[in-house]
Each structure stands twice: as structure tokens, then as C-alpha cells.
Design a protein around this nucleic acid. Sequence first.
DNA 1: TGTACATCAGTGAACGCGCGTTCACTGATGTAC
DNA 2: TGTACATCAGTGAACGCGCGTTCACTGATGTAC
Lengths: 229, 229
Amino acid sequence: VVSKRTEDRQPLSTAAIVAVARRHLVDHGAAGLSLRAVARDLGVVSSAVYRYVATRDELLTLLIAEGYDALGAAVEAGQGEGPPRARFAGACRAIRAWALKNPHEYALLFGSPVPGYRAPEATTNAAARVPAVLAAIVRDAGGREGKGGEPQAAAAAAALAPAAAFIGGGQHPTRVLEAVIVWAAIFGTVSFEVFGRFDDSVATAPDARATFFDACVDRWADHLGLPPG
Amino acid sequence: VVSKRTEDRQPLSTAAIVAVARRHLVDHGAAGLSLRAVARDLGVVSSAVYRYVATRDELLTLLIAEGYDALGAAVEAGQGEGPPRARFAGACRAIRAWALKNPHEYALLFGSPVPGYRAPEATTNAAARVPAVLAAIVRDAGGREGKGGEPQAAAAAAALAPAAAFIGGGQHPTRVLEAVIVWAAIFGTVSFEVFGRFDDSVATAPDARATFFDACVDRWADHLGLPPG
DNA sequence: TGTACATCAGTGAACGCGCGTTCACTGATGTAC
DNA sequence: TGTACATCAGTGAACGCGCGTTCACTGATGTAC
């Protein structure tokens, strides 16, 4: 007797396993992700999964890499092809939209690190896609007139040498500082929204949230010295 | 025969349980926090803990409340008693210092929400202590000359009504917007540092990190329009 | 065209583990008279 | 001062559970001759 499940089942594959695992993140978070539960959902005995995935941590790694790639692709597409300020706004909105659509995957990427888990190099390339988009925008925006904060930026220039190298093009220290600040601010703001920390300070209606975020984007663009329009 | 542990043991108490639980966060994170492991560490049988704590979730709640209170107290003390800009800097540095000293408790408070856990009201009062400090600083800093972004701030004013009410004193919309932006930016930046996301862009030496953070604080103070000095 | 064989995806049972929670209990401590 | 009793902190055994991982196996599929 062959069970119905077996007849209907798609052939197992790493991709199918990762897809189901992604759905499981929703209910239990990264720490509660279970190979057995994933196998159960696939209609397969738990040991079958081991033909495709060596270990629970490897599955986590696949999920993380897939997440960074999905976010990176969304942001690359979302920036469009206009002047720097428009590209910046598009990129920011793409980050937010992806995070709101995939809150649990976002939490996996940008929430607390999973204890005992160390990300292998495979994921760090994918993780750099969003910073690369932001860096290109800063690079393309060209020179920045002084707007204050120069002494502090000069003091922090040594600390920010890796960031300056990543952005490239020999940016002014204030610009590098402001770029790193804005980068952290974007993800801080999106994390606050996704994790519910704005619920007592920003109206919860979706369009109120969008309006607020757009205002943030505009201020960040000002802080970055992106030319208007 | 009475075991040595029993003789040496401090009397059990909720405080002792919470203290051990805090240490356990370090190794396993919030999701891996186990009543049995805590009991074991206290040299006590696991059911004994239930005389002090009704449930695992209650222990988590105690930890969260304790965390918010500890952070709130540190920030209230850290702001000192100077002009707004100095208080702001003191408060920001206190947040960062506390987070770096208690990274796992910080992750519990500001990382991904624990799946299936809903914070009871008891914790939300404690959680408001840091925002209250920041709000008071903004309030005390007084009026703000326009520096751009007014149309966006006006558009977002309705969305930011709860924040404006929390800050009080009838602040200019731009000021409210900038306050919320800076609030999220502070925690975004501290989270990035604690969670290791700056490791490829900011030099890792402690004083480089401190210099960078001070530069951030200064820029945020500028964005908030806090008078220099 | 037909047989023999290798491949290999998925099975099923088992391992040893730790978890949260319940419950009847013991035995020391402190109070009442 | 001495006995009887109530209190209650902590015990120990048990419940039912799900987990990651291993391992010998089955049986369908495809290839070689």
C-alpha cells in the first residue's frame, strides 16, 4: 500500500526543503526551526532530509543566504534608474517592503544573532548586496558641501577607513560618516516597525506608516547631502 | 545524608532565579532558556522553581522587565545634569555602554521578538523609561529653527500624533519627526554594533568604536537641532 | 528484446537527550497553648 | 519549659513530548550487454 502523500508528492529537493523551512520560520522563529517538522510537512520521513541537507545548521545557512539574496535582488530592482535621490528612496522603500512582507525572514537576517551559530562566508557576499547599492548611490551623488560635523567626522575617519574603502571614490569623511549613520538608521527604523516598537508612537494605519517612512527617507537623503529632486 | 549543595545553598527566591536565568541567556539566548537548567544551576530540583515562578513565560517576563529597568536606570543616571546636548550625549553613551556590557539581555529587549510571546503591560512601563529621557531632552531644548524637511514633516504629522503627545509641549512637527528618527537611529546603531554588523565597515578596536559612536551622537544632536555646547 | 546489475531516493526503527509541568510526599521550622 | 500542630520550601518520580542524528534496509529506476 502506497500512501496518497507519496503519490502526490513532488520529488524532494534542497529547494523544496528550504521553501518549507521558510514557512516554518513564521510559526516558531529561527530557534524553533526543526528538521523533523520540515520533513513532516513534506510528507517524508525525517531521515530523508539528510540526503539533501547535512545538518540543521546547514539548513539555517541556506535560509539566511536565500534571504540576503532575495532582499538584495529586491533592493537592486527597487532603486530604479533615476537621480541618486530617487534611487535612494526606491532602495529604502524596497528594504521596508521586503521586510514587511517577510518579517520572519527579516528577523532571521537582522534580529538577534542565533546563539551558537556562526555565518559562513557564503552568506556574507549575499549580505553585502544592499550595502553595495547604498554605496553606489553615495558614490554617484558626487561632492558634498560642508554642513557641520566636520571635526567629528575627521576624528572618526580612521575608524571608518573600512567603510570608506567599501564606498570607494575617495569620499569626504563627513560623507562616509553620514553614509554609515544612515545605513544603520534605515535598518533601525525598519526593525522598529517590523518588531512593533513604533506601535505607541506612530499611527498604525498602513498609509500612516508609509507616510512616516517616506518622511524618514527624505530626511536621510538630506543628511546624506543628496541633491534634491 | 544531606548533599553539600543543600547546605551551602542560599535560600531560593525569585530574585535568585532571575539572576541565574540572566546568566543563562548568555549561552543559549531567550529561546533556549530552560527552567530545568536554571534549577540545576541553583542546585535545586526543577519543580522547586515553580513555587516562585508560575511558568517559563513568566520568567521571561521577569527578565524583560528587569532588563528595561536596568537600562532605564542606567540612561537616567547617564544623562547627568547639563545642557540638553550634554544630556543627550550622556544618555546615548549610557545606552551603548549598557548594551555592550549586557549584549544578551539587550538582544532579548531589542532583537527579534520571541515567537509566541506577548509582553504584558508590566514591561511596557519599564520600556518607556528611555524614550521618556529622550523626550524630556527634546522638550527642554526648546524651539527649533527650520532646517528643511518641513513639508515631509507636515505630511507625517498625523502619523506622528502619538509621538507628539508623548513628547509633549507642542513641538514643531519637524522636531517630532526628527526625534523619532533619531530614537530609531540610536537603537539601530547600537544594535548593529552589538550584533556585529559593523565588523566590515568600522574598525573593531574599542576606542575606534567609541570615537565613531561619539561622532554619530554629535550628528544626531545636530539633526535634532540641539544647541551646541 | 530481454536479462543482470548498480544506483540511490526514501523508509522505519532506534539512540539518547532535554524539555515543561504535575503531584503526592517529606521534613524542618515556627507558633499556640 | 515542653508538647502538639500547622505551615510551607523543597523532593523525587512521573507524564508525554519533540528533537537531531544514525543506520541497515527496500524497492523503483535506469543502464550495460
